[in-house]
């Protein structure tokens, strides 16, 4: 899912945030994204800061639904992997098997569920595998070594290293816990390790990539979109991140 060797860039967009939201997906691809994370908005995004909360609220207020977002995606041709990010209730409400098959049907090959820790992941993990979807697990700065090994062993696609103790959201600096965690995760798995949460600037992305195989950038881009940035505008942002990562 994530190319080995280079430094991967995975930008995020909340599905349905604007009527032409898939233009952002295409802009990300054109600017050099290695994969693209699509947020399936949830009413109660407990692990998200203000920016993604607002993005989710805006999408839901526009009438965004999982089916609608997946239908939108089916209408575009994207050459890089698509990864869905959503909360556990949307997965369980449909049923993990049905939900994962629906994702696969729309060309999505990865799934991130932040409120589904490894201990609760068995059913979704199996359903995802059956549908050909990689269930990407998250590791946190406080995760002890034995759990880290289990997360490394059970994750698929890559391991998502949460840079800091907190919610998603733009930050002025990259927390030192990010590189410490990435190094610890890399010691227990051969999967690529991507740092996400708070990665906001090209300089931060470059720093994160010193210890990890790439970055996920979400809030910084969604803040721009919420403030009215067009797909062309964010293409420039993503190109700058790309250039910083090499």
């Amino acid at each position: 899912m994530i190319p080995y060797g280079g430094k991967a860039l995975v930008p995020y967009v909340t599905g349905g945030i604007t009527a032409d939201w898939t233009s952002y997906v295409l802009a990300y691809e054109a600017a050099g994204a290695d994969a693209i994370e699509i947020g399936l908005p949830f009413s109660d995004p407990m692990l998200d800061g203000v920016t993604i909360q607002q993005a989710s609220d805006r999408a839901l207020a526009r009438g965004a639904t999982v089916d609608g977002i997946l239908a939108d995606l089916s209408e575009i041709k994207v050459g890089v992997p698509l990864i869905a990010m959503t909360y556990a209730n949307l997965v369980f409400r449909a049923g993990p098997a049905v939900f994962c098959r629906r994702l696969a049907g729309a060309g999505i090959t990865g799934l991130i569920v932040p409120d589904l820790p490894v201990d609760e992941a068995a059913a979704v993990s199996a359903a995802a595998a059956d549908a050909g979807v990689a269930l990407i697990l998250l590791a946190a700065p406080v995760t002890p070594d034995d759990r880290l090994a289990e997360i490394g062993a059970r994750s698929r696609g890559f391991v998502y290293a949460v840079s800091l103790m907190g919610t998603t959201g733009e930050r002025d600096t990259l927390d030192a816990s990010a590189s410490r965690l990435a190094t610890r995760v890399k010691a227990v798995t051969d999967l690529p390790v991507l740092i996400g949460f708070g990665v906001s600037t090209p300089a931060q992305a470059a720093t994160a990539a010193e210890s990890a195989d790439g970055v996920v950038v979400a809030s910084a881009l969604m803040r721009r979109v919420l403030d009215g940035a067009t797909p062309d505008d964010v293409r420039t942002d993503v190109a700058a991140l790309r250039a910083a990562l090499g």
């Binding site: 409120d115 820790p117 697990l137 103790m165």
Partner: peptide, 11 residues
């Protein structure tokens, strides 16, 4: 169960 972010599991 315990459906929380990994960051809260140890706590």
């Amino acid at each position: 169960g315990r459906y929380v972010p990994e960051s809260l599991v140890p706590a």
